[in-house]
Structure formats: C-alpha cells, structure tokens
C-alpha cells in the first residue's frame, strides 16, 4: 500500500467515524425534541419545586420563604424530637391503615358484584363508580353535613338503631375514623373502576374451564380471579397508598387537623407550618421526609410485589 493511499483510507475512516458520531448525536437531539414538552412541564412543576424544597429544608427562612441562613440538618433533628411531628406521623400512618385496606376490599367486593352478568348491572356499575366524578371539596361538605351532631343523618341512624350518638368530628377517638370513612367513600369510585376493568380483562374461558372442572366459586376466586387480578390490585394498592399519604382536602374541610391534632396528617401539618406558622424551613423538611417515606414504601411494595404479581 502506498503512503498516499493509506493516508486517504485513514482520512475516509476518520470521516466515517465522524459521520457516525454526528448521526448518533442528531438522533439523540431528535429524541430529546420529542420529549421536550414533557421535560418542560416536569421541570417547571416537578423538578424545580422538588429541588427548591430540598434546598429550603436546609435553611432558616423568613416569613416570605426567603432563605436567611444555612441550617444544615437542624430542621430534621428538631422534627424527630418534636412530639407534634410524631403525632402527625402516627395520624398519617393510621389514616393509611384505615383507608387503604378497607377501601380496596370494599371496592373489590363491589367490583366482583358488578362483574356478574345480570340484567340492569350497568346501573350499579354507574352508581358504584359515581364518586369518582365528585370533587373532594364537594364530597367533604356532604360528609360534614352527615356528621353534624345536631342535624346529621349519621347520628340519626345511630339513635334509630338504638345506639348512643357520636361526636363524629369532635371526639378525638372518632375524628380520624370519621375522616377515613369519608375518604374511603370518595376513593371507592376510582378503585372500583380500575378493579372492574381488571376483572373484565380476565378471559371468561378460564372461568368456564373451572366450571367444567367443578371447583367452588370461592376456589376460583382464590385460584383464578385474585392471581389474574394481581397486576391491577398492585397498581391500585400503590396509587391508593400514595394518595392516602398525600391527603389534604378532606382534612382541611372536615377537621382542620383537630381535635387535639388527631387528624393532623403530614400534608396538613406541612400546610400549617408553611402557610400559617410561616416556618418554611421546617415545612420543607417535612415535605422531604414525606417524599422519601413514599419512595421507600413504594420501593418495598415493588420488591414484595414482584413475587406475588403475575403479568400475563
């Protein structure tokens, strides 16, 4: 091979590499361009607030939220030694426990009923999913009237049944339960819809095959329906949990965190700290803790779910 020829080949090789790299770069740019709307929206409404919250949680700030001096982990240390924060944590965890499992079991039962092929079942499907169409504010007001000690239907029902009246939203022992009942009612529509959708996706021939085999209904519920529904259940549990951790609206309308902070769930506590007490730093620190709390719970769920969820 002569020297000029070799030179030429090297040149063309370099040129080709350069072309390949530039082509890859162009396709990366093209891909980013498609993502641009999402990236913009996420940045403005998600990434920036998240970073800002994290930033603020390490600073002492004034009432307007302008950071004044670096606080390090002071806010976090204070939180973990504050009884108010512990009450708030307890209320949040209890609220999740009171709303998520009963809510899902109720919605699952309704979905199983509504999945039967009966005349006029469409009416019930509509009714069962109707709470999805109501805002938290409107539902909360309705429940507030129902819980009213004087004119509410809840107490009237209790006296009719021969039981003594309850101060639903005022009794520290009942307030969180009352709010949970209202929340379960509000969430049922959504959970029901998703679960019904999941049930309807199960191949009816599986049930027919089970019928011919002659297994009991409970056996096919346990051995066919639940395993086949597991991806949907998993989704619903995850979403419900995250929602429960982030509950705010009904607390604000029904109890304002009272009585005796028994319903002061964490998002409401954040709101109070930030916008009533103007303690932005502490509020941000709680928000950061909530974020990591939800993240960890969700990760654990995915880890546990892997073994139990059967994707088709």
């Amino acid at each position: 091979m002569s020297l000029p020829q070799a030179q030429q080949e090297t040149q063309s090789f370099v040129k080709q590499r350069w072309l390949g790299n530039s082509r890859r770069f162009a396709s990366l740019l093209e891909g980013l361009l498609y993502l641009l709307p999402s990236i913009l929206l996420f940045t403005v409404f998600l990434f920036y607030p998240l970073m800002k919250t994290l930033y603020l949680s390490f600073f002492y700030s004034d009432a307007q939220g302008v950071p004044l001096s670096f606080a390090g982990f002071d806010h976090f240390v204070q939180l973990f030694s504050s009884s108010s924060f512990m009450t708030s944590m307890k209320a949040t965890l209890l609220f999740v426990l009171y709303t998520v499992p009963p809510g899902i079991i109720l919605a699952l039962a309704l979905a199983l009923l509504a999945n039967e092929k009966l005349r006029g079942i469409g009416f019930f499907r509509t009714i069962f999913s109707s709470t999805m169409g109501m805002s938290v504010a409107a539902s909360s007001v309705i429940w507030m009237f129902m819980y009213n000690p004087a004119i509410g239907i809840a107490n009237r029902f209790l006296t009719w049944a021969g039981l003594s009246e309850i101060q639903w939203l005022l009794d520290p022992g009942w307030a969180l339960i009352s709010v949970s009942i209202a929340t379960i009612w509000m969430n049922t529509g959504f959970t029901f819809m998703i679960l019904l959708g999941g049930l309807q996706n199960i191949d009816s021939q599986l049930y027919e095959s089970a019928k011919i085999a002659g297994v009991s209904r409970f056996y096919s519920l346990r051995k066919i329906t639940l395993p086949m529904l597991s991806p949907t259940l998993f989704f619903v549990i995850t979403v419900s949990m995250i929602n429960a951790f982030q509950t705010f609206g009904q607390i604000d309308i029904l109890t304002k965190g009272g009585p005796m902070e028994t319903t002061n769930v964490i998002v409401y506590a954040i709101y109070k700290d930030a916008f009533i007490n103007y303690n932005v730093g502490s509020a941000s620190a709680q928000a950061v803790l909530l974020f990591f709390g939800i993240l960890i719970v969700t990760l654990i769920q995915f880890k546990l779910g892997e073994r139990k969820v059967h994707y088709q």
């Binding site: 021939q205 599986l206 051995k223 066919i224 395993p227 086949m228 059967h310 088709q312």
Partner: peptide, 14 residues
C-alpha cells in the same frame, strides 16, 4: 365431560 377451549384457557400463573 371435559372440554378443550379455542384459546386453551390455561391459567397463566400456574
């Protein structure tokens, strides 16, 4: 009787 279905109706999780 026994029956074989068109899409086999096998249980995917078993």
């Amino acid at each position: 009787l026994s029956m074989v279905f068109q899409n086999y109706a096998l249980f995917p999780h078993l």
